[in-house]
């Protein structure tokens, strides 16, 4: 298992991967990807018990599903960096004949992906399904899922929240990327989601709040706390405060980099703020 310094180096390299992948196509979603670099690194390099020799059925290993599929760059980078496929393949992101589609899919057989996502609001239902099967199979592994905060505007999420609490699906740890931004602006400008913690608690979930979602030590501690709470009869959700565009000064504090790629000059500036650690693909 990596130590904290190594995890931090991994985060920086993942940021470089994200920036270079979206720059190479002039398309993709860098903002949310950068905001979740610490979460993904914590999950795949510290928290989850998982096997990079990929099996769709994931028996006796933890499963992660990405509901907000548009942040695929961070997902692909971390999957490659943890050994699911060769890092060189990151250069094919969004290109024709690639397994690294704009939004993640099982369709091209990319190791590490178990469900297509991109059309929002569906991942929690999928994750609950995986969790129910794990219970039927007497498999004590856990199911992790990540959701955007804007995504909570989709009604299906609340169907799923209601179901999991009502049926004691307590082997699931969902995380909400609470950066309070979406394509058209701030959450409050587009459609306020109100007191999220109170809403989730009233739906019967155990709610943890991580105020420092871009601090890898903090997010590891919170995920470990969540693991300890599993099996208690209630599903668990983490409200993870993050900064969209984290790690690149001009991408932070705005929603403008949700779905826009940097140009050559901007890339060079962004990369200079994140010097090579593990080596570029």
């Amino acid at each position: 298992m990596l130590n904290i310094a190594e995890l931090k180096d991994t985060v920086v390299q993942v940021r470089r991967d994200i920036l270079r992948m979206v720059h190479a196509n002039s398309s993709g979603h860098p903002g949310g990807s950068l905001g979740c670099a610490e979460y993904f690194t914590a999950l795949y390099f510290n928290i989850m018990n998982h096997n990079t020799n990929f099996s769709m059925n994931a028996k006796n290993e933890d499963v992660f599903l990405l509901s907000n599929g548009h942040i695929s760059p961070v997902f692909y980078s971390v999957l490659a960096r943890s050994g699911y496929f060769n890092i060189e393949e990151l250069s094919t992101f969004r290109k024709i004949n690639s397994r690294l589609q704009g939004h993640p899919t099982t369709h091209e057989g990319l190791e590490g992906i178990r469900m297509a996502s991109g059309s929002l609001g569906q991942g929690l239902s999928n994750a609950i399904g995986v969790a129910l099967t794990k219970k039927l199979n007497n498999d004590n592994s856990l199911v992790y899922s990540l959701h955007g905060d804007g995504e909570l505007q989709e009604g299906q999420v609340w169907e799923a929240l209601m179901y999991a609490a009502g049926n004691n699906v307590d082997n699931i740890i969902s995380t909400i990327d609470y950066n309070q931004k979406q394509i058209d602006g701030s959450l409050d400008d587009v459609l306020p989601i109100g007191d999220l913690k109170a809403k989730l608690e009233s739906f019967g979930w155990l709610v943890l709040e991580e105020k420092e979602g871009n601090n890898i030590e903090a997010i590891i501690n919170t995920l470990q706390a969540a693991k300890k709470l599993s099996g208690s009869g209630k599903p668990i959700v983490i409200i993870m405060h993050t900064e969209m565009g984290n790690g690149v000064d001009f991408m932070m504090g705005t929603h403008k980099w949700h779905g826009s790629a940097p140009n050559d000059e901007q890339l060079s500036d962004a990369l200079s703020q994140n010097p090579v650690t593990l080596g570029d693909y």
């Binding site: 469900m115 399904g129 129910l132």
Partner: peptide, 28 residues
């Protein structure tokens, strides 16, 4: 009873759960 899942009036959630349940070998 252990293999029957009453989802409630929430068909979108039902299809999503069914898709997830295939991971691990169930036939929903």
């Amino acid at each position: 009873p252990e293999r029957f899942f009453q989802i409630g009036i929430a068909e979108a959630n039902m299809i999503g759960i069914a898709a997830g349940m295939t991971i691990g070998g169930k036939i929903p």
